[in-house]
Design a protein around this nucleic acid. Structure first.
Lengths: 151, 151
DNA sequence: GTAATTTCTAAACCTAACTTTAGGTCAAGG
DNA sequence: CCTTGACCTAAAGTTAGGTTTAGAAATTAC
């Protein structure tokens, strides 16, 4: 009834642009924790709009949901996060983004020297970086290995 | 028998570091086209080592397999690609990479102003860019939509 | 000329991040 | 009161990019 009862999931979905099913999924992944009303329906705080916005931004930055959950754990649990709280955890986000950009820039800098020369001999190039690739996917060994230029 | 018979799939796997299953998968996706020997086994050209290396690099750059197939279609079909051929298609790759870096840098430049201010009001920020998100995944609508700072 | 490797195909399985479906309950309006 | 729309759970389906499995045939090694 009153506004103090919190937001229903549909209202939160409209405010964030997320699908209702996505919000439930995020809950299952531990990214958001609504309470339940007498009828068993989810109710959200207004601050959860901001929380989900943060999740969406972090996803654009390339973080996985577990990573985002980790970053969000930096928020205070006992009170509604303040603007300063959000600033604080955005530092972590910025670090992730910086690293991602650095990696791509490094790749780009090597492009002309490696593919550009036509040899594609990766082990001899700085492109070969197992650490970068390890994050790509949990399944299967993926590492770069080139050949001698005669191929 | 002789070297002129081409590479078996296991040999190609060893040369590239890819799994045999991955190479077969790439064939199914139209990224590589071996011929078959008398016994029905796949045989590859030595130039295919380079082709797969290119696939692996392009993947690091964030291209999907269909995108990579598209880029590879720029290679001559009637002869073994020369170093210059590889240089030519690497220009396309470079363009993809540049665009990806630009997007991330733009996101970073907006980070302090948007999340950093604590409002997370995305529609009012330059972060809101449907084009960037459209590429993320085929399934489900994902677009950013913020809220007013009171949330 | 066998035995051990490789390779073959097809189909099932895997993760991430969700959506869809099915069948049922809750809440709000008239 | 009762209908309509929002919400509930659980399970199955989806896409990308592969891996694994199973059973059979081809190659290679000795």
């Amino acid at each position: 009834m009153a506004a103090s009862e919190g937001l229903a999931i549909g209202a939160l979905a409209r405010r964030t642009g997320l699908a209702v099913s996505a919000i439930r999924y995020y809950e299952a992944q531990g990214l958001i924790s609504p309470w339940r009303n007498a009828g068993g329906q989810r109710r959200y705080q207004r601050a959860d709009i901001r929380r989900l916005s943060f999740v969406m931004i972090a996803q654009q930055f390339g973080l996985t949901l577990p990573e985002i959950r980790e970053v969000l754990s930096g928020l205070p649990g006992n009170r509604t996060p303040t603007p300063q709280d959000w600033k604080d955890i955005s530092v972590t986000l910025r670090a992730h983004l910086d690293q991602r950009i650095d990696t791509l820039v490094r790749l780009r800098d090597n492009l002309d020297g490696c593919i550009g020369c036509g040899c594609l001999s990766l082990p001899k190039c700085a492109l070969y970086n197992p650490d970068d690739r390890a994050k790509s996917n949990g399944s299967g060994p993926r590492y770069l290995m080139g050949d001698s230029p005669e191929a």
